[in-house]
């Protein structure tokens, strides 16, 4: 037990001794790069570490600085990193044509509750059931909406 403790103490001392001998700037930078996120860029000169790169937010930038400051051999940190501006919120593109079609279809199918109609990319898809006598009337209205195509899978009764 005693021997083990002494051995451990010796190892710790040894590692301190290695560092205190003066680590090269390049090694410090390499050590830093191992523990820092990939977006961090580190340049070390005379023990002064300069942090650059783009971080997703202020806290990530600050965290990288703190990690860098704790790396052995780093005397001080110059934080020149930047924060990526947040991306604009995703815009859902709904073509006006589809919206108009959807509205027209809603009105057109109101009297045909057994007909299900959907619109995508200008194409009207019909499913459900319809009476044979009502079909031309429905088709006339839907055709007048000027769709790209009518995909008619209605069951005709």
């Amino acid at each position: 037990m005693r021997l083990n403790k002494m051995l451990a103490a010796l190892m710790v001392f040894g590692s301190f001794a290695a560092f205190s001998c003066g680590q090269k700037d390049a090694d410090i930078a390499a050590d830093a790069q191992k523990v820092l996120p990939i977006e961090a860029k580190v340049d070390v000169k005379d023990g002064v570490a300069t942090l650059t790169g783009q971080f997703k937010d202020e806290s990530a930038k600050k965290a990288a600085e703190e990690v860098l400051a704790k790396i052995k051999g780093v005397k001080s940190v110059v934080n020149n990193a930047t924060v990526t501006p947040p991306p604009p919120p995703p815009v859902t593109v709904v073509s006006a044509a589809d919206e108009l079609l959807a509205k027209g279809i809603k009105d057109a199918t109101k009297d045909f509750p057994t007909v299900k109609a959907q619109v995508k990319d200008g194409i009207i898809s019909l499913t459900g059931e319809i009476k044979k006598a009502s079909l031309p009337k429905l088709m006339m209205v839907l055709n007048a909406l000027k769709p790209k195509k009518i995909d008619n899978k209605l069951t005709v009764q």
Partner: peptide, 26 residues
């Protein structure tokens, strides 16, 4: 006149299922 054209459409494609014609007669 519109109905006459639609009648022919209904003759060629009785249930309007082919999906290859958009007929807009006003």
């Amino acid at each position: 006149a519109k109905d006459a054209v639609w009648e022919v459409y209904g003759k060629i494609d009785p249930n309007f299922t082919a999906g290859d014609l958009v007929l807009n007669i006003n």
